[in-house]
Design a protein around this nucleic acid. Structure first.
Length: 831
RNA sequence: GCCCAAAUGGUGGAACUGGUAUACACGCACGACUCAAAAUCGUGUGGCGCAAGCCAUGAGAGUUCGAAUCUCUCUUUGGGCACCA
């Protein structure tokens, strides 16, 4: 019988499914729980891609490992199924998103099964399903009650192609991350989550989770906390004042002008005092017409002086001019700055262009040439002269009645979308226009079906007669519905809370199940979710914690990212390059076990993997040879095989596994176990290969004999069935099908290999009797000798010094020192 | 511009807290089997040299008996942020 993955893999997939091997008892208290979570996919029309395949393989391997170790493991999968592609497809073809989604999910499930991923799809979460989004809406309601969500009209990022508002996190290089269209700023009313209330907690919480350092750092940078001061500048001959945020209050004496963002409220309020209003207005309009991209790419700073108004520097009492300029952003700090050209590069550039005085207040640089932004001693600063920058920050802030404070880069999360295929925002408006939460008994607040998908900039839901009628029936004449839907990132911000109790119709998850299963022990997924999903999910957790819905405030204790899967030249796979590889064709060609094992063997999990079809044969050969060893042997010599299976008989007649092989086996158990725990799957697999190479050695003559005559078994001199089985269990997480096939069909066990115990290391067999010791002279290897593993320095010293190979290098020299590393090396220092 | 990560054979990659550089795999060469090829199996495989040996972990210094690993400077490549006051 040949190794035919195509036959054995579907067979076991079906049997596992039928026997419900993946089913767990979520209330089982007898075993320790382990919750391992995958980032669930968006079910797109193109199917599962290689990135999913790698990440889900890693989690499936780890899940099977933990399961064999005896944990009660929750390892669910679901679908992040709301989103634009299904809607865009509907616009093109008229097929309803709900239908497309259902079809795609079915395909994804088939693909996942074919890779041997052992998910319980009865427990799946589908975010577009009313039984799920009911709870998305319910949680939204709790946030609404507790003031964590609000509506306002403000400039937001507008994608004219997607015809919707998008969040700051979804703008990449000034373009829409989805379609690449340049983002413009548009005044749109919309809903916001108060994520900024949690800025400090979102930073602090990272201290207690086991996440990759760069991911934590990126989140911290994204939140962008900066310490500084709020200072007030009075406007001459006016009650009004300008408040600025600065990280450098110590340089206040050098502030020689001020800048307001063109959108700043005060600009309009000062209209009557501004003598060049026409020019100012022109500049404001110019700014409005710029896209994010234009503004970012501007080579030279521009601005317009507000003629006729002056501000007072509160430190010096001097009058300083006020400008508007688009290098000052309305959305950050107070939307206004004090400009200190001597010590800020941007202000320096602007001051040079507009001939504004540059006053040095920190010594140490040459401000004739460029701004000096380093530390130094204060000068030209009255009584603060001679003070250090750090001391002066507080001192000067207090001196002018300012306030030390922090500002953040993070903005509130704008989650309204003017699109159809998303979770409806469960809000209705009274005839007076007041927003009210839809009462709980009307949840799920269903997405209407009688809509026109074609985007016109007006939310598609506004065209639904059914929704209009529904609102009037329930709330009365004059009441209207909220037509926006939620950003799909809302759906994925809490889905991990649903899996432990996915069928609960009364709660999003029962208290008991939450207490038992949360938080997630291990989360695996791509690093591209650092800013959005991971930040939003942490915000949801903290917000739900704050209002008492859950009793923990970090959702994911341990996080690991898989690297990208590239083509064999190291290029990103993309449709346009035509280099996309699909997992189905790989499974078809090499079998799921080979795909899984190669995926993890090719590179460390967190690194990029270059998918090279030519190399996967190595892994396939590894599995072929295991098959050859055991299955072919059984066929060639059934009698002998029967004897081998009976371990007692075998030991009597042939003896146990040779000691050297036994030691290698125990080293292998140790290394594979440790590597698994540390996600070093690539080296775990290579250790399994090393062991296989050792127990399966045949020589040339035998190989040809086997080929020609099908002669007797080669099992005789090597491994016993007990030890072979240990090896098979170590292999099982990676290549579950072949392992199960051999376990049950060839070794004739009644019970699944996944119900066995993980092999334990036998400490007796960890130490080789003899080891090779390296002999160095002055740090260079000159000789090697076999010695007892516990040999002492005195025992080998003589031999080593007498060795001819050593003498050549020590003759005529004085031996100054001997360095001895037990069991490893002896180094003779000779001068 | 700022921050982060990386650089090891022809290729993907090993090397745990400084201690045998190149495990494992691909590829390649030669051989066995074959009429032949494929598959399979075996042997070899960093470079230079007949050899003893010398040189090799992006480049250059340093610390050390000993450096891929630690320190400094630089180069290149990825990734992220970017007028954030």
């Amino acid at each position: 019988m040949k190794y035919e993955p195509k036959e054995i893999e579907p067979k076991w997939q079906n049997r596992w499914e039928k026997s419900g091997s993946f089913k767990i008892d979520k209330d089982d208290e007898s075993k320790e729980k382990f919750y391992i979570l995958d980032m669930f996919p968006y079910p797109s029309g193109t199917g599962l891609h290689m990135g999913h395949t790698e990440s889900y393989t890693a989690s499936d391997v780890f899940y099977r490992f933990k399961k064999i170790q005896g944990y009660n493991v929750l390892h669910p999968q679901g679908f992040d199924s709301f989103g634009l592609p299904a809607e865009n497809y509907a616009i093109k073809t008229g097929v309803k998103p709900a239908e497309t989604t259902q079809k795609n999910i079915a395909t994804y499930i088939e693909q996942m099964k074919s890779l041997g991923f052992d998910y319980d799809f009865n427990e799946k979460v589908i975010t577009s399903d009313p039984s799920y989004y009911k709870w998305t809406q319910w949680i939204f309601g709790k946030f609404f009650e507790n003031g964590l969500v609000y509506k306002k009209t403000q400039k937001t990022n507008w994608c004219s192609s997607c015809q919707t508002v998008i969040a700051n996190e979804q703008v990449v290089d000034g373009k829409c991350e989805r379609c690449g269209t340049e983002i413009i700023q548009k005044e749109v009313p919309g809903w916001f989550f108060k994520i900024t209330d949690f800025s400090d907690e979102l930073i602090a919480g990272l201290g207690k989770v086991d996440w990759p350092e760069y991911t934590k750092k990126n989140q911290i940078n994204w939140i962008g906390k900066s310490q500084g001061a709020l200072l007030k500048f009075e406007i001459k001959n006016s009650e009004k004042y300008i408040e600025v945020f600065t990280t450098r209050p110590d340089t206040l004496f050098g502030a020689t002008y001020m800048v307001l963002a063109p959108e700043h409220k005060l600009v309009n309020e000062l209209k009557d005092e501004i003598s060049n209003w026409n020019d100012v207005e022109k500049y404001i309009i110019q700014t409005q017409n710029k896209t994010e991209l234009d503004r970012m790419e501007a080579k030279e700073k521009t601005g317009e002086k507000l003629e006729g108004v002056m501000a007072i520097n509160p430190a010096t009492g001097g009058e300083i001019p006020i400008f508007i300029a688009d290098y000052v952003l309305a959305g950050y700090g107070t939307g206004a700055i004090m400009a200190v050209p001597a010590h800020d590069e941007r202000d320096f550039e602007f001051a040079k262009k507009y001939n504004i005085p540059i006053v040095e207040v920190i010594s140490g640089g040459n401000i004739e040439e460029k701004a000096y932004t380093e530390n130094g001693e204060l000068v030209n600063s009255g009584k603060f002269n001679g003070m250090s920058v750090e001391d002066a920050k507080r001192g000067i802030t207090e001196f002018v009645g300012g306030k030390m404070t922090a500002t953040y880069r993070l903005r509130d999360w704008s989650f309204s979308r003017q699109r159809y295929w998303g979770c409806p925002i469960p809000i209705v408006y009274s005839p007076e226009g007041e927003a009210k939460m839809v009462p709980e008994k009307y949840l799920p607040w269903k997405l209407p079906e009688d809509v026109d998908f074609v985007p016109t900039g007006v939310a598609p839901l506004s065209k639904s007669e059914e929704l209009k009628k529904r609102v009037e029936d329930i709330f009365g004449q004059g009441w209207t519905a909220e037509y926006d839907t939620m950003d799909t990132f809302v759906d994925s911000s809490w889905y991990f809370l649903r899996y432990p109790d996915s069928h609960n119709e009364k709660e999003f998850c029962s208290k008991e199940r939450l207490a038992k299963w949360m938080p997630v022990d291990l989360y695996i997924g791509g690093a591209e979710h650092t800013y959005m999903h991971l930040l939003y999910a942490r915000f949801f957790t903290k917000a739900m914690h704050k209002i008492g819905l859950i009793n923990f405030d970090e959702p994911f204790l341990k996080l690991r990212h898989q690297g990208m899967v590239l083509d064999k030249e190291g290029k990103k796979m993309s449709k346009s390059k035509g280099n996309v590889i699909n997992p189905d064709s790989m499974v078809e060609k090499f079998g799921a076990d080979s795909v899984r094992t190669y995926m993890l063997f090719a590179a460390p999990l967190e690194d990029e993997v270059m998918w090279n079809e030519d190399n996967i044969v190595g892994v396939r050969r590894f599995l072929d040879r295991i098959w050859e060893f055991i299955v072919k042997d059984k066929e060639r010599d059934p009698e002998w095989f029967k004897l081998w299976l009976n371990i007692d008989e075998w030991n009597k007649s042939k003896g146990p596994t040779p000691t050297s092989l036994k030691i290698l086996l125990n080293k292998t158990i140790k290394k594979v176990t440790e590597d698994m725990e540390n996600f070093r799957f690539n080296t775990a697999i290579s250790q399994l290969m090393i062991f296989r190479n050792a127990f399966y050695k045949i020589d040339q003559g035998d190989a040809n004999d086997i080929y020609k005559t099908g002669m007797e078994s080669k099992l005789s001199t090597l491994i016993t069935v007990d030890d072979f089985e240990k090896f098979l269990i170590l292999l099982a997480p990676f290549a579950p099908h072949i392992a199960e096939e051999i376990w049950q069909e060839i070794l004739e066990h009644k019970e699944s290999i996944f119900l066995q115990d993980w092999p334990e290391v036998d400490e007796k067999y960890l130490q080789d009797e003899e080891v090779e010791m390296v002999v160095q002279v002055n740090g260079k290897v000159r000789d090697r000798l076999m010695v007892a593993h516990d040999v002492t320095e005195d025992e080998v010293k003589e031999t080593v010094l007498e060795s001819g190979k050593v003498k050549v290098f020590t003759d005529g020299k004085e031996i100054k020192k001997i360095i001895f590393v037990p069991g490893k090396l002896i180094n003779i220092v000779a001068v």
